[in-house]
Design a protein around this nucleic acid. Structure first.
Length: 277
DNA sequence: GAACAGGCAACTC
DNA sequence: GAGTTGCCTGTT
């Protein structure tokens, strides 16, 4: 295992980052660390006095910086969003959140699984998929598994995924794997496209509508202008902006505004803040 | 046992 | 275009 230290200047919370709904494969350890697998590597992360300590079998510090988004100025983004009172509150509350640089295919698959589903079950399905078709990484008493490559899943039939208990999503998973494995859906090409064009390409996948496509854009391609609206966001937007609000008005960092609002609203929003103060 | 869940798609009007 | 329904599975 390799060890890395990164000095962090902006607010940074591992708990908020890993438990704000963007990522399903990292969990807290008793030590207070967070551990999980990303881009085929086990990562154990700990934050102490503004330093991010990583233990990992990766030796690619560029990938690690990318995954934790260490080269982005979050304080500047929060200042840019602060003209809006509610976003200012939400971004204060969730100031430690960072947008992880996740693997594209993993995000495609994970957010297909997420539809009409809750986080514990989403995590369970993804873990079963990884244990069966991923590569094991031994770490002491625990064995972790990488997220399986798209071409492995592409060779399966939906019936092969019965053990996942993913229900009607199984054929969607296989079709998405085939699109990615064949190059029909290519992350690099999507990155070059205007947002709406990339969205309509992603929505060609069966079982992928506007919401899941927005999650794939934001979490799988880190298109920060993508703005997923689920039932929680609908509530938050309706409560604060009325019915006919266009999230695009948040501009190039709409996706980060979304993340702050989502986390704030799910944590109880203003009511929770009032209680804690 | 019925209703619902961080959604989609096919169908209705 | 807005509204309704079934879809697997799991939880309440």
């Amino acid at each position: 295992m390799n060890k890395y230290q990164f000095k962090i200047d902006d607010p940074f919370s591992l708990a908020h980052t890993f438990e704000c709904g963007q990522c399903f494969r990292f969990n807290p350890l008793e030590s207070g660390e967070y551990a999980g697998v990303a881009h085929g590597h086990l990562i154990r992360a700990r934050l102490d006095s503004g330093v991010l300590y990583l233990e990992t079998d990766s030796s690619d510090d560029k990938l690690l910086r990318h995954f934790f988004d260490l080269d982005r100025d979050y304080s500047a983004i929060r200042r840019a969003l602060a003209y809006d009172q509610y976003v200012a509150e939400a971004s204060e509350f969730g100031s430690g959140i960072r947008m992880l640089g996740q693997d594209f295919w993993e995000a495609v698959c994970s957010f297909i699984i997420s539809q009409c589903n809750n986080i514990p079950r989403i995590k369970g399905i993804i873990e079963r998929l990884s244990e069966r078709y991923g590569r094991p990484i031994n770490a002491g008493e625990t064995t972790y598994y990488t997220f399986p490559d798209a071409d492995v899943i592409a060779d399966l039939e939906p019936e092969d995924l019965g053990f996942l208990r993913s229900g009607y999503r199984a054929p969607y998973i296989v079709e998405a794997a085939r699109a990615v494995a064949s190059g029909r859906l290519n992350a690099e090409e999507l990155r070059q496209m205007p947002l709406e064009q990339a969205r309509s390409e992603i929505m060609k996948l069966p079982g992928v509508g506007n919401k899941v496509a927005s999650c794939i854009l934001l979490y799988g391609l880190r298109r920060l202008d993508a703005f997923p609206v689920d039932v929680w966001m609908k509530r938050a937007l309706a409560e604060n902006y009325g019915k006919d609000f266009d999230p695009a008005s948040f501009g190039e960092y709409a996706g980060i505004a979304q993340q702050y609002i989502f986390f704030y609203r799910r944590s109880g929003g203003r009511e929770a803040r009032a209680v804690s103060e």
